[in-house]
Design a binder for these strands. Sequence first.
DNA 1: GATGAATGAGATTTCATTCAT
DNA 2: TATGAATGAAATCTCATTCAT
Lengths: 208, 208, 208, 208
Amino acid sequence: MSPKVTHEYKEAARERFLDSAEKLFQRKGYYETSIDDVIQATGTSKGAIYGYFESKEALLESVQERQYVKNLGYGKSILSGQGSIASKLEKLADIYFASHDLPARQRCRMNLELSAASLHMKPIQNKLKNQYDQLQTVLAFLLKEGVKNGEIRKEIDTESIASLLMAVVDGLALRWAITDGDLDWKNIKDALLDLTLKGISVDRHRSR
Amino acid sequence: MSPKVTHEYKEAARERFLDSAEKLFQRKGYYETSIDDVIQATGTSKGAIYGYFESKEALLESVQERQYVKNLGYGKSILSGQGSIASKLEKLADIYFASHDLPARQRCRMNLELSAASLHMKPIQNKLKNQYDQLQTVLAFLLKEGVKNGEIRKEIDTESIASLLMAVVDGLALRWAITDGDLDWKNIKDALLDLTLKGISVDRHRSR
Amino acid sequence: MSPKVTHEYKEAARERFLDSAEKLFQRKGYYETSIDDVIQATGTSKGAIYGYFESKEALLESVQERQYVKNLGYGKSILSGQGSIASKLEKLADIYFASHDLPARQRCRMNLELSAASLHMKPIQNKLKNQYDQLQTVLAFLLKEGVKNGEIRKEIDTESIASLLMAVVDGLALRWAITDGDLDWKNIKDALLDLTLKGISVDRHRSR
Amino acid sequence: MSPKVTHEYKEAARERFLDSAEKLFQRKGYYETSIDDVIQATGTSKGAIYGYFESKEALLESVQERQYVKNLGYGKSILSGQGSIASKLEKLADIYFASHDLPARQRCRMNLELSAASLHMKPIQNKLKNQYDQLQTVLAFLLKEGVKNGEIRKEIDTESIASLLMAVVDGLALRWAITDGDLDWKNIKDALLDLTLKGISVDRHRSR
DNA sequence: GATGAATGAGATTTCATTCAT
DNA sequence: TATGAATGAAATCTCATTCAT
């Protein structure tokens, strides 16, 4: 009768499913998590979940979708903010590793899980590719801005450097997902900034 | 009675299983590949494989083990070779992306598959961690050599930079596993070397 | 929602599984009976049974449990009834051999099957041991009652005699399980009572 | 070339198979013992055993056969010996419970295993039935002898009593197979003799 | 809409037996 | 004759999905 309330109710239920599914997929992985596990964690019945998600695979897709939207939100707010290009790049990387709602390790694991799953699930793969492309565009744009405003030297191949920056972050996430040592993001970030900005080469120092 | 022949024969059979398993795990993923698939691809009977591998999981472990040993071989030959530190780092990265026996894309996918699987399979995870630690040690050592012989500036945090170098490579592999565009490793490598050696920052140019 | 109906329904389904399993275990034995056999006999689907019993072994345990409970019921009603000690002992033995719901032969076979299985299934073994201990206690108690009220001579070792009484019954069951000749329980029972009460020795006749 | 030697050799090999099979069947049960287990315990190869036994089932049959022959030997020597009927009965029972070559517990278990298996293996069942019939005949004969020579009162039903005597022994074996408490055969035997000879009834004392 | 019992295809694994060497 | 790799039927168990209530 009051579609608004019903709709909100349904939305809340959907979120509860996504919450438990996300947690379980992180902890146990997609394939090791059964629909029953999700049901139990959510406290509902078997039939219920199929009112919200067409299949187990669709559930994973939705988990990814939600995560993507969240990240997008963070990203946008950063880009529209103030600060140097370098500080913006830094903040973008923070999305991964500085905790927002989830421990970073879990976020990394979810990421790995999704990436692997995407190899065999086209819709997920497409969304991931989109994400990559969008982020690549944004980064390249930022780098060009940096070139324009004199922060960044103009010889660099902005597209490639954008790819590389994304890669470092993904690679770190991958490693931290697997390793159990605590991740000292602050330290690594300093090294990353240092490397990114100045390189490791000594010859340019000589040229001073 | 004649152990030599028997042993060689068994070894060959084992390799055949590993070959088909590796291919299938790459293409369809570990979970989507059934033992039946492997059997069929190898052209044997159901029971046969269990004479070589205790379980499906053990099969994956062996696939990983073999890959690791292969990489180790490449790595050692590179380290013991001649050349500047930079060229050695370059060659190490080539292991991933310049085809040896396998198309690079497939190698990347296998890597992703294994990393994800490792989250839920302790033995694989342990081997992966070892690999990371060993590679990290080697890289840090190379960097220190570079500092010593004046190739690399001494202010850098060698351990962190080593982590970052591994991360870029892993990150690129991850992306290329997911993306379907062909990977232009030569181009990316140039950018990577440029980034790594000189950084992106312009301020040091100013300081000339 | 309506737990009463659901519960009764589930209970009935469970009983149906137990019925067919019991019959099959008797006829073909535990190991020669496949889950498929049970499914087919019950007229359900493969997965269904696992909603009621964790495993094939658990199914056997439940069959045993149910049988035990049934016997316990018979036993209690006998003990609380009227009559001489001898008549009570007789009635207890009747539980095995005088048909209640099952042909005696089948009961004997099930018993043998369970005893043998128990050698390799701890939970079943424990339940069997408990049954033995309880019955032993009851029998020894009855015998002591008999001594007290003058039915039984006081020199006997009640515990040992209790063991022996149980043994005769088990031994007869064992034999009847194997033999195919019809079992003439009435006849054997007379001999058993005669043996038990008077012994076979003639010397006490002499001592009259 | 020398058939005698070959034959003896084969016989010895056969015995080794039977030895390990017997031990394994006792410990793990027929169904839980694999041909591989037997092979390994014997230290031969898979194909070899099939030169001696047609099938796993035939192996069990042979184990039983050998045991039967052994028991028969014991039995005959007892019957042909000296002593009262009672002492002969006692010695017959000792075959089961007083160790000869095997711990009594294991003998009991093997017995139970065989009895259960016999339910589903006709040849074994037939042999067991024969054993029972033969023993029954012998016991009944002994009892009649006892009646004749005045040891045993003439009112008893010798056939039934023979059945009962066998049953006690089988029943005790069954219980001891299942129970883990050590079996105090000496004690139980005394009670058995007491029960068998004098019965439990007090009325005949009164009649003194 | 919610529930959860039922479904049944399919997965992994075992193992008695065969047979080429 | 001995060997042990291969065979493949069959067994147990799982689990995403459906559907009657």
